[in-house]
Design a protein around this nucleic acid. Structure first.
Length: 571
RNA sequence: CGGGAUGUGGCGCAGUCUGGCAGCGCACCUGCUUUGGGAGCAGGGGGUCGGCGGUUCAAAUCCGCCCAUCCCGACCA
C-alpha cells in the first residue's frame, strides 16, 4: 500500500486523558480512536494488528485440534437463568429487553451457549471436543481504563473443552497451556503462567498468563529461586518465625487514649507483629470478625475462596458499635462468642499479643490466642508481602504488577449439568462431561505488546504482528530515480509475500522518519538520492535503531530473509 | 458506588479568580521558497466555549441542575 492513500492519523501529542503508554501510543500512531469510555474504533492500522494476532490464535488453536465456531452475541435470559448466572452476575452483564418484552443479554462469556450445543453429544465416542471462537464480548465494567487494557466491548478468543472424565480434562487443559505458551512466544510477550483464583466461576485449576507491566491491574508473587508464581489472590509464603512475647495469666487492660491504628499502637511499644488486627465484615449478610497479625494485609479473594462465601463487605460503623460496643481502632475478639470468628493461621499459638478491648481507648495486652479467643475457623486470609520467603524453595518472593493476558481454567461439570449435557459411556451408563474454559483478549494482547515494546520515539512491533513488516521511505518523492528505485523494492517485497508500505507522501524526511518510528514498523528501507549515487539504500532496524547501507540489487533478498526469520521467531 | 480533577476548533493549551470583540501552538487549505530527522514567509478556512436553566444592559467567565471524560478506591468469569 501507498501511505499517501491510507488513513493513518498520527498525532504529535496524545490526548490528555491517555495515561497508559500503550493507550498514548496506539492513539498517537493512528491505530485506535475512542468513541466513548471503554469503546474503541479500530482504525486501519489497528485492525491489521488485531487481525494478525487473531490469525496466530487461530493457527495455534487449530494446531491442538480445536474447531472454530461463531456463537450468538445476544442470548435469551433463560439459558443464564438455567445456569444460575442470571442472578449471580449482577451489573457486569449488559441486559436488554426485546420488542416482545423478553429479557436478553449481551454475551460476556459463552459457557451456557456451548453447553446448549453440547446437548447434542450423546456418546463417549463423540468426546473430547474443543470449540473456539473469536468474537465480541460485552461487559459493563464499572471502570473502563487504560485504553484497550480494560474495555466494555472487546474481541476475545474463547475456547471450551468437553471431556468425559478428569484425565481427559487434564489433557485438554494441558494442550491449551502449551498452546498459550506458543501464542505468547509468537507475540513476543513474556507471559508467566501463575496459579490464580478461579473466582465465581468455580473449578479446580486456574492458570493466568501474566505479563509484567506497571499498567496492569493484578499483583503476582514471583519466586526468584524456583518457578513458583501465583496471583496475590492465592499466593502463599513461609513466615519468618516470630518469638512471642512473654505471656501472662490473663489479658491485661491498659488505657490507649487516642490510639486508633496499628502504627500508633506500635509506637506505643506494641510492635505490629505482636498485635492482632480485628476486622469486622458482613459475610453474606452476617457480621463476622476476621483476625490477622497486625502487620499482615487482608486478602479478600482468599477469604472468599476458602469459605465459599459469595459476598463480603466491610461492616458499617453503626453495626460494629452495636455488636461490639466500640469503634474501629479499639476492637478485639477476646470474649466474643456471639459472632463467627475467622483467624489467619499466622496467629495460631501466639501469646503476649495486644488487641482492642471493645471499649474505646482501651486495649488488652498479654493475650494468648488459643486461650483467650474462640476462633471458629482458621483460614489463610493474609496477603503476602514483597520479600517474603517462597514456600517451595525459601528464596525471596517479589510482588510484581501484571497484565492478565490469558486465563485457562477447569469448569468441571457445573455447566454441563445445568444445561443437561450427558453422554453414554462404554458401559452404557449416563455420564455428565466435564468442561474447561480458556480465554485470550485480542485487544488486550495488542495493548500488552504496545506496553512492553516501545521507546521514546514510539512503538516497536514484533514482525509477527506488525501492521506492515517493512516501510519503504522515499526521502525525495520528486526525484525520479528515487521513486523508481523505491517502487522496484516495494514491488519486489510484495512479490515475495512481504507486507510492505511505500511512504510516497510529499513530506519532509524528518516527518516521514518520525511517523515510521511512532507507528513502529520493524524494518525501514530509506531510499534517497544521496545513497543512490553509489547504488545504495539504507536498512534500518526499529528495535535497535541500527542503519546499514545495502546495495539496491540485494536489498529485497536481505529484507525477505529478515522478515521470514522474524515471522518464525517464537514459533 | 465513594473521593479527586477536567470539559474552549482534529490534538495540546491560555483566557474563568476580577463578566465587556473567543485567543495561542500544532494540524488543515492556497502561493512562493526550502528539502536526508517533525522547515520559512505570506495569505486563508474551521469553534453551539459539554448541555439546560438562571442572574445581568452584557456570561467561556457568576449561580443551579444535568451530562461526559480521566485518576484513586470499591467492584470486577
Amino acid at each position: 500500500m501507498r501511505w499517501s492513500s491510507l488513513f493513518i492519523p498520527t498525532l504529535r501529542e496524545a490526548p490528555a486523558e491517555a495515561e497508559a503508554v500503550s493507550h498514548q501510543l496506539l492513539v498517537r500512531g493512528g491505530f485506535i480512536r475512542q468513541l466513548q469510555s471503554g469503546h474503541y474504533s479500530m482504525l486501519p492500522l489497528g485492525w491489521k494488528v488485531h487481525r494478525r494476532i487473531a490469525e496466530i490464535l487461530r493457527q495455534e488453536m487449530d494446531a491442538i485440534g480445536a474447531q472454530e465456531v461463531l456463537l450468538p452475541a445476544i442470548h435469551q435470559a433463560a439459558i443464564w437463568q438455567q445456569s444460575g448466572r442470571w442472578d449471580a452476575i449482577g451489573d457486569d452483564m449488559f441486559r436488554l429487553v426485546d420488542r416482545k418484552g423478553a429479557d436478553q443479554v449481551l454475551g460476556m462469556t459463552h459457557e451456557e451457549v456451548i453447553a446448549s450445543i453440547g446437548v447434542e453429544l450423546s456418546s463417549y465416542r463423540d468426546l473430547p471436543q474443543m470449540w473456539y471462537q473469536i468474537q465480541t464480548k460485552f461487559r459493563d465494567e464499572p471502570r473502563p481504563k487504560s485504553g484497550l487494557l480494560r474495555v466494555r466491548e472487546f474481541t476475545m478468543k474463547d475456547s471450551y473443552s468437553i471431556d468425559l472424565d478428569d484425565e481427559g480434562l487434564d489433557r485438554s487443559f494441558n494442550l491449551h497451556h502449551q498452546a498459550y505458551q506458543r501464542i505468547f512466544a509468537r507475540l513476543d510477550l513474556h507471559a508467566i503462567p501463575v496459579e490464580a483464583s478461579s473466582g465465581a466461576m468455580g473449578g479446580s485449576n486456574s492458570v493466568e498468563f501474566m505479563v509484567e507491566s506497571g499498567a496492569g491491574e493484578d499483583d503476582v508473587a514471583v519466586c526468584s529461586g524456583c518457578d513458583y508464581a501465583a496471583n496475590l489472590e492465592r499466593a502463599t509464603a513461609t513466615l519468618a518465625t516470630v518469638e512471642s512475647r512473654p505471656g501472662s495469666e490473663a489479658p491485661e487492660r491498659f488505657p490507649t487514649p487516642g490510639i486508633r491504628t496499628i502504627d500508633a499502637l506500635a509506637e506505643a511499644g506494641h510492635p505490629a507483629e505482636h498485635q492482632i488486627k480485628t476486622l469486622v465484615y458482613r459475610v453474606d449478610g452476617e457480621l463476622a470478625l476476621l483476625l490477622l497479625r497486625g502487620d499482615h494485609p487482608f486478602q479478600e479473594q482468599k477469604f472468599l475462596d476458602a469459605t465459599g462465601a459469595s459476598e463480603i463487605t466491610p461492616a458499617e460503623s453503626d453495626d460494629i458499635r452495636a455488636a461490639l460496643g466500640a469503634s474501629p481502632g479499639s476492637l478485639g475478639a477476646v470474649g466474643v462468642d456471639d459472632l463467627v470468628v475467622y483467624a489467619d493461621p499466622a496467629l495460631e499459638g501466639r501469646t503476649g499479643m495486644t488487641t482492642g478491648a471493645n471499649e474505646d481507648d482501651v486495649h488488652y495486652s498479654g493475650v494468648d490466642v488459643d486461650r483467650d479467643i474462640g476462633v471458629d475457623r482458621w483460614v489463610d486470609i493474609r496477603g503476602i508481602v514483597d520479600g517474603e520467603a517462597c514456600a517451595s524453595c525459601g528464596e525471596p518472593l517479589s510482588v510484581v504488577r501484571c497484565i492478565e493476558a490469558g486465563h485457562i481454567f477447569k469448569l468441571g461439570r457445573k455447566y454441563a449439568e445445568a444445561m443437561g449435557v450427558s453422554v453414554l459411556d462404554a458401559d452404557g451408563q449416563s455420564r455428565i462431561p466435564t468442561m474447561g474454559s480458556y480465554g485470550i483478549g485480542v485487544g488486550r494482547a495488542m495493548a500488552a505488546v504496545a506496553e512492553t515494546h516501545h521507546d521514546d520515539s514510539g512503538l516497536i512491533w514484533p514482525i509477527s504482528i506488525a501492521p506492515y513488516e517493512v516501510v519503504v521511505t522515499v526521502v525525495k518523492v520528486d526525484d525520479e530515480e528515487s521513486m523508481a528505485a523505491a517502487e522496484a523494492i516495494y514491488e519486489g517485497l510484495q512479490a515475495a509475500g512481504i507486507e510492505a508500505l511505500l511512504d510516497d507522501r510529499d513530506e519532509r524526511p524528518g516527518v516521514k522518519f518520525a511517523d515510521a518510528e511512532l507507528v513502529g514498523f520493524p524494518l525501514r528501507v530509506t531510499v534517497g538520492p544521496r545513497g543512490l549515487q553509489t547504488g545504495h539504500v539504507e536498512v534500518g532496524l526499529r528495535a535497535d535503531g541500527s542503519q546499514t547501507e545495502e546495495p539496491v540489487g540485494t536489498v529485497v533478498d536481505t529484507l525477505v530473509g529478515r522478515v521470514e526469520a522474524g515471522r518464525r521467531a517464537g514459533s
